[in-house]
Nucleic acid binder design. Sequence first.
DNA 1: TCTCAATGATTAGTTAGGCTAACTAATCAT
DNA 2: ATGATTAGTTAGCCTAACTAATCATTGAGA
Lengths: 139, 139
Amino acid sequence: MKRQQTFFTEYFQVYRPVLNRLNMLLAPHNLFHSQWGILKLLKLEGEMTSAEIALRQQVEKPSVTKIVQRLVEMNLVSVRPGTDRREKWIGLTATGQNTVETIMAELEILYCELLNGIELEELESAIRVMEFARKNLNN
Amino acid sequence: MKRQQTFFTEYFQVYRPVLNRLNMLLAPHNLFHSQWGILKLLKLEGEMTSAEIALRQQVEKPSVTKIVQRLVEMNLVSVRPGTDRREKWIGLTATGQNTVETIMAELEILYCELLNGIELEELESAIRVMEFARKNLNN
DNA sequence: TCTCAATGATTAGTTAGGCTAACTAATCAT
DNA sequence: ATGATTAGTTAGCCTAACTAATCATTGAGA
């Protein structure tokens, strides 16, 4: 088997375990993985429209609508109309900011634990490989 | 942001694109990602029981039951009773073997394309990092 | 030997989170 | 002004996961 195949085999093999662990960490906050994905995006990049979230998360717009509605109900994000009145700008509430920061701190611990003992240089290589694949996929 | 966090951020960010691409490749074979996961497992490791598939794929047993039922309907896997009559051994049919081989060949091309230009040494690093994380997660 | 807890698998029912198709509302370009 | 495009939503479907409960079989101990 080619090493490229080994890479993706390993990639998929580690996905469920890491997802399960992530969901365990999110459960006390009543959040699921995809909700967290959007919250983190809004934290890192500030408010944006549904369409942009969809693009960034590589899902269709209706999927975003549904998740954002839940996040609004939970008072983690809020929506304000844009000057282009078709647009709705979605951003974190104060509660949302706090929640994201708390979870990020918890995640940092988890992630460091999981990779504790890995050489930094290897980590950088791994990051580069995945960035590379993602750029290739976007074309 | 710590590099460990960057790693996992990048890891999750590449998941949807790569999954979408994989599903595109699987669609002509009328397969979905989770079905493919089980088919590949059976190809690499030979026949096994539902319980073992569940363990290996890190999902609950009822999830396996449902997917295997579909694969049996599609004549890709078959089930034979074990000497312990509670057990059912699940394995690829001849058709299943062929299908898996075909898809593996297609995937090899895709995977090599996606990583074309990456140094082999970097690839090895990335594989090691993910293996390492997976082992850590299993404890 | 008989009982009963443990194990393997299934059934039933629920949920998140994807999708497409079809829609409304607003904007833009002729 | 009007036709096309864009942003977002709604409705309805599907996959793929989950839990709880059930059935059948096994094996170990009284």
